[in-house]
Structures are given as C-alpha cells and as structure tokens.
C-alpha cells in the first residue's frame, strides 16, 4: 500500500465573501494512507513553496468529532464515503489520476469567508434561540432522581451526536437546516429534563432557522444520506410533529 499516487484537483478559490470565486487546477503527489486533509497540507506546502497563496480550509480535531471540516468533494459533502467527515477520508478512497472537485458548503445562510471556509454562526444563533434546557448551575437534583429508560436515553443520545458541521444544509437542494434543528429538538423533547420548554423551544428554533435564510424541507433525504454521524431522517418527522403541535397549542 505504500505506493504513491497523483490526483488532479479543481479547488474553489474565493478571496473573500464579496469576491467572485472560481475553480483553480492543481495536481498533487500523494499516497493512499494520507488523509484528504493531509493531502491538502501537501498542496499548501507546495503553494507556499511556489510563493502562491495556500488554500484556506476549516479543520481542527481531524478525528471526525469537532464538526469544523467542511468540503464538498465531487458534489458530496465530506466526500464519497458515507458516515465520515472529510478529515476521516483517506486517499485510498480515490484512484491514481482521479480528478477531484472540491468546493465549500454552499448556502446563503453559510456565506463563504475565503476559499473553502464558510461562516456557520447561523447554527449558533439557532441554538441560542432555544436549543437548551434552562437550568442555572447549581439547580440540579441528584442525577439518579429521574430515571430515564435506556431506549429513550439511547434515542436521545443518537440525536445528540450531531456535530453541527452543516453537511445537511450543504447537501439539501433547498439549503434547509431541518436535520440539524430536528436533531436538537428530538434530543430535548425525548428527555424528561426538556419537557418544561418543549413547545416554546421548537417554535423559537424554527423561527430562528427561517430567519437565518435556510430553505424549507422537501423530504428528499439528502441530508440524512450525507450526515457524517448518521442522524436519521426521523428527527425531521419529530420536528414537524413537535412544531405543529406547539403551534396548534397557540405557542
């Protein structure tokens, strides 16, 4: 497996939010055990060496949990393999000589900062609008006072594994954020601790989501298919149900 390989890249370059962007072509010598981002490190090293500007891209933990990396690779957010992030993608998933198109998340609610980096603060504002349990530090009762059946806890956990990367938005033809919002709403509406604010939460979060300029869901399922953490489409059903019931209750 130690053989080297060469790939041709078409990378989106955009100076800043206002600038017009365009694709630039590069070719990189890599090897199959390299991660996709390490391949970009090599490209940047090469660009710096040649006196050119390196490609700006977001990344941090490089182990698939922080949710910062965000490349659309050949039209798929986080690349050709399912249930992983870009940083977990390895070059062995490509062939020698492949041409790979790399673009940023594209959505009006995620404006490009530079090249492949985008601004996802809209997600923070959605959480700030209601994605929490209002409990000040020190107000808690003993953790085992409220029993939670294992299957409910597991289901809440499954929804809570969302890493907030935004792949769902980038994959959706409508740039809808409902998988992200649905995951948080599902987690908190399942748990006893989330009941007090159950209805006001979902309404506030959906209002904020709409105000941020995300599109409406048309149930294509692209979000769940591209989600690196496998958040299921059913969280959107839950979101719909929770929201409708809250609205019909006059929230």
């Amino acid at each position: 497996m130690k053989h080297s390989m060469k790939v041709n890249l078409q990378v989106w370059r955009q100076k800043n939010a206002q600038a017009q962007g365009n694709f630039e072509n590069y070719s990189v010598e890599t090897n199959p055990n390299m991660s996709f981002l390490e391949m970009f490190d090599v490209l940047n090293e090469q660009l710096i060496h040649d006196g050119k500007e390196p490609v700006a891209f977001d990344h941090d933990c490089r182990e698939g949990i922080c949710g910062m990396c965000s490349m659309v690779i050949n039209g798929n957010p986080h690349g050709p393999k399912q249930a992983i992030t870009t940083c977990q993608l390895h070059m062995r998933s490509f062939n020698d000589g492949d041409t790979i198109v790399v673009e940023p998340w594209r959505a009006n609610a995620f404006p490009v900062i530079k090249d492949l980096s985008v601004n996802r603060s809209s997600f923070d504002r959605i959480i700030a609008s209601g994605g929490f349990v209002s409990v000040n530090t020190g107000n808690a009762v003993d953790a085992n006072n409220i029993l939670i059946p294992k299957d409910i806890a597991d289901e809440a956990f499954e929804a809570a594994t969302c890493i907030g990367c935004g792949a769902c938005v980038s994959a959706c033809k409508n740039a809808s954020a409902m998988l992200f919002v649905g995951a948080k709403v599902t987690q908190l509406s399942l748990l006893p601790q989330g009941q007090a604010e159950r209805q006001s939460r979902v309404v506030a979060m959906v209002n904020q989501m709409d105000a941020e300029g995300f599109g409406a869901c048309t149930n294509t399922g692209a979000c769940a298919a591209e989600c690196p953490k496998g958040i299921p489409l059913s969280v959107i059903a839950t979101l719909n149900r929770e929201y409708t019931s809250a609205k019909l209750n006059g929230k």
């Binding site: 078409q10 989106w12 962007g21 694709f23 659309v72 050949n74 039209g75 798929n76 050709p80 399912q82 198109v101 673009e103 594209r106 959505a107 009006n108 609610a109 490009v112 994959a171 033809k173 409508n174 740039a175 809808s176 300029g213 995300f214 599109g215 294509t220 399922g221 692209a222 298919a225 591209e226």
Partner: peptide, 16 residues
C-alpha cells in the same frame, strides 16, 4: 433562492 451560488459538480454518489 436559498443558494445563490450553485455547485460546480453534481453529487458523484447519489444522496437522493
């Protein structure tokens, strides 16, 4: 209108 800049490449692996 939620995505003014369209993608340059269509998804190589179909997601929907």
């Amino acid at each position: 209108k939620k995505r003014n800049n369209k993608y340059g490449a269509a998804p190589k692996r179909s997601n929907s």
